[in-house]
Design a protein around this nucleic acid. Structure first.
Length: 372
DNA sequence: AAAACGGGGCC
DNA sequence: GGCCCAGTTTT
């Protein structure tokens, strides 16, 4: 059975001991050379590629967490124009940072990045720490970000294991168990670490190139669906390709289902301005501006905000990673003491200062006001 | 080990 | 309608 660990390969967990362990778990030299050559020729030209400023590299890595390259492209330069340095980011109001982040999601990333910037200014002379341990201690910096930033900016021999690398190595080694399992993650982590150390030891290329090559392969060739194995530089060594199971890996585990909640959203208008409120500092969309909203039927807006719901403007469904809003926007009148908030011109709500979750309400309100 | 945490593109 | 993306933190 599978609990006969003595017979298993220590590196890939395959049923038999195999060649994996030569090189101490690193990918063999020809494999590394093939991937690095491919990367030099095929790397996409991206604004943060070739960047030397550690701060700008860091910003790109945080924005790219769980986020498509295309979405980052639209906001990266704009963010850096507004916050061109660690010091500029550190002294900005959090609300300004969150506005610049609007639409990217996972707003905690922006909050942590700014907190980290403040630590850098206070304790690291306004620089990004070149010491991996000091960098890892900063808010929002996990193992991936440590490896990515420290390798790209400082040529540190540290792995950067993201979703791409998990997929590439799951296929290359044909890891049949889901990477959610700790044992599988240890294998991937070990191969990534030994490989980047080998690249550094043999001075093949800067370690940042190696880490990015692995990720770039996952983005361009070893894609989640319909991998382009025929054009993959690692195809000759890929066990999943040999067995015809590349597309089936990595194996995913069932995800928890998303609860659905009814949400009442208030559109209170006064003198062509709309009432907006700051969302609570913890929880969903923490700290961002939003329309007053409460779970439940429209009537809850009166008890929650002193806003009496009137005509319904629109209903929509917004899917988050872990829950669903079944939302309805209501034209409201202020009946009690106005809630703490701000009154913004409608146009301000449409300029990417707002989380996307409220977009249908803003659009419907604009339509309603344009056609009285 | 699982859940919280966004948004959007793609099939 | 579900999957997945250059993840981190908390439970």
């Amino acid at each position: 059975m599978s609990n006969d660990r003595q017979a298993r390969c220590a590196v890939c967990l395959g049923a038999q001991p195999c060649g994996c362990a030569e090189n101490g778990g690193a990918l063999a030299l020809p494999v590394r050379e093939a991937l690095l050559s491919w990367y030099l020729e095929h790397a996409r030209s991206l604004p943060w590629r070739g960047e030397l400023d550690p701060y700008r590299i860091w910003v790109s890595e945080v924005m790219l967490q769980q986020t498509r390259v295309g979405a980052v492209l639209e906001r990266y330069e704009r963010f850096l124009e507004r916050f061109p340095s660690l010091a500029a980011l550190a002294r900005a109001p959090e609300s300004a940072v969150l506005e610049a982040w609007a639409g990217l999601g996972y707003y905690r990333r922006a909050q942590k990045l700014q907190q980290a910037a403040r630590v850098c200014v206070q304790r690291h002379g306004g620089q990004v720490p070149a010491d991996p341990r000091a960098f890892a201690a900063l808010p929002g910096v996990g193992s991936y970000t440590v490896g990515a930033v420290q390798s790209i900016a400082f040529d540190a021999p540290l792995p950067a294991v993201d979703g791409n690398v998990i997929r590439v190595l799951s296929r290359l080694l044909c890891l049949e168990q889901p990477p959610a399992k700790a044992a599988v993650r240890r294998v991937i982590e070990r191969v990534a670490r030994c490989s980047v150390e080998a690249v550094a030891r043999e001075q093949q290329r800067p370690t940042g190139d190696w880490n990015q090559a692995l990720m770039e392969l996952g983005a361009q060739r070893c894609t989640p669906r319909a991998p382009r194995c025929e054009a993959c530089p690692l195809a000759p060594w890929c066990r999943a390709r040999a067995r015809g199971c590349a597309e089936a890996l990595p194996r995913r585990t069932a995800r928890a289902e998303r609860p659905e909640v009814a949400l009442a959203v208030a559109c209170a208008v006064r003198d062509a301005r709309v009432l907006v409120v700051r969302r609570p500092p913890g929880g969903l969309l923490a700290g961002t501006w939003g329309l007053p909203a409460a779970a439940g039927p429209p009537e809850v807006l009166e008890s929650a905000f002193g806003l009496r719901p009137g005509r319904e403007l629109v209903r929509w469904r917004h899917v988050f990673s872990h829950r669903v809003w079944n939302a309805r926007a209501l034209l409201c009148t202020v009946v009690g003491t106005p809630p703490r908030g701000a009154w913004w011109p409608l146009a301000e709500l449409r300029t990417e200062r707002f989380p996307s979750a409220f977009r249908p309400a803003v659009q419907a309100l604009a339509d309603a006001l344009a056609v009285p």
